[in-house]
Design a protein around this nucleic acid. Structure first.
Length: 363
DNA sequence: AAACCGGGGCG
DNA sequence: CGCCCAGGTTT
């Protein structure tokens, strides 16, 4: 009886560990020696920066503050000076505060108890698990961005991982796989997951062809590798409404107005436009002769800008004439100071029109 | 220019 | 608890 007859496939963690033994990183400074303090420091630094950048900072930091009590006893300035260049200084402050808390409440050492560790500033659930598993080979899961990506792909978990329901599901999967990890290899397993996500199952262009998990990866099988993990939903854009007037003279020319030189659609030619129907009506009364209420209501144009979504209500009115106004060489100017111009349909293509307006006018 | 990121803060 | 942010980097 072979084990694969029972389980039918080699465990996720076993494949990762085998991969790690061959391709993982085994010579990182915080792995030798792999003490709680060194692992903690590395985890905090790695939260925000890549391994290659962290290494020299780690070495300088650990040389200046060789033990946790050394760090606790240091001045804020001294700590910050050794963090300078890494950014995210709030985490250096948390690190320092946590070191002091350990001296005051845990005998000058990082607690091995997950709850006590989690209670320290700057240490969340994933970082606490990373510290305990790496420093002590204790059986705790991690769930950083790398692991979320690997699990979402391997299991085909859709939904943005920032959603509590999705994150909960990913934690459950992480803990499920953890049960298969052989005793004594929890530290390696944690490092294996991080290395795997950072170097093989990367966000862009993962190396699926050489992946030890490819045969059982749901995303791979279903062609969803690029779609998972689901990206954060773009935040709801503010919405604005406006009314546009499509006026035609008896010859069928269309009245266009030049936009101001700054702002949306700067200097392009568009239909006369107002924020509200009432403003549009006022503008019409000042500029044109005709019956505003006779205008035809066209379908609303939805146009999305980078920072808001515009719902533009076009109104169409034919056989309109402008009132006589002060003229200059370029033709009439509206009361708002923007140039106005009757444009023949055939001329539209030669002018700069915003795409949605061009489409509306049928050009 | 936008996505990304663990933890913290806030209602 | 759920939602969103700060503060930098990567794509």
């Amino acid at each position: 009886m072979h084990f694969w007859m029972i389980s039918d496939r080699i465990a996720f963690s076993a494949r990762l560990l085998a991969w790690f033994d061959r391709h993982g990183r085994h010579d990182l400074p915080w792995q030798h020696p792999r003490t709680p303090y060194r692992v903690w420091l590395s985890e905090i630094m790695l939260q925000q920066t890549q391994v290659a950048t962290v290494i020299p900072y780690f070495l300088r930091f650990i040389e200046r503050f060789p033990t946790l009590p050394d760090l606790a006893a240091a001045s804020t300035d001294d700590v910050m000076a050794h963090w300078a260049g890494l950014g995210y200084y709030a985490r250096a402050r948390n690190l320092h505060a946590a070191a002091k808390a350990c001296v005051n409440g845990h005998g000058g050492e990082l607690p091995r108890d997950i709850e006590a560790l989690h209670a320290l500033p700057g240490i969340g659930r994933s970082t606490a698990g990373a510290i305990l598993s790496q420093a002590w080979n204790d059986r705790f899961a991690i769930l950083d961005g790398n692991v979320k990506r690997v699990l979402a792909r391997f299991h085909g978990i859709a939904g943005w991982p920032g959603l509590p329901a999705v994150e909960k599901q990913l934690w459950a999967l992480a803990e499920q796989h953890l049960r298969d990890v052989p005793d004594g290899r929890q530290a390696d397993y944690t490092q294996a997951q991080m290395d795997f996500g950072a170097t093989l199952c990367t966000r862009a262009r993962p190396a699926c062809a050489v992946c030890p998990l490819q045969d059982d990866c749901v995303a791979r099988r279903e062609g969803l590798v690029d779609a998972l993990p689901t990206s954060k939903p773009s935040k709801q854009l503010p919405e604005r409404e406006a009314t546009a007037l499509w006026l035609e003279n008896p010859a069928g020319d269309i009245l266009l107005q030049r936009r101001p030189e700054t702002g949306i659609w700067a200097s392009l030619w568009t239909l006369p436009q107002a924020d509200t129907d009432a403003d549009m009506r006022d503008w019409f009364a000042r500029e044109a002769k005709g019956d505003y209420d006779a205008a035809e209501t066209l379908p609303v144009v939805v146009h999305t800008f980078s920072h808001y979504r515009l719902y533009l209500q076009p109104l169409r009115l034919r056989k309109v004439a402008l009132r006589e106004r002060v003229r200059d060489n370029d033709g009439p100017v509206s009361s708002t100071g923007q140039a106005l111009r009757w444009v023949a349909r055939g001329e539209l293509a030669t002018l700069g029109l915003p795409a949605p307006i061009r489409k509306l006018l049928g050009n």
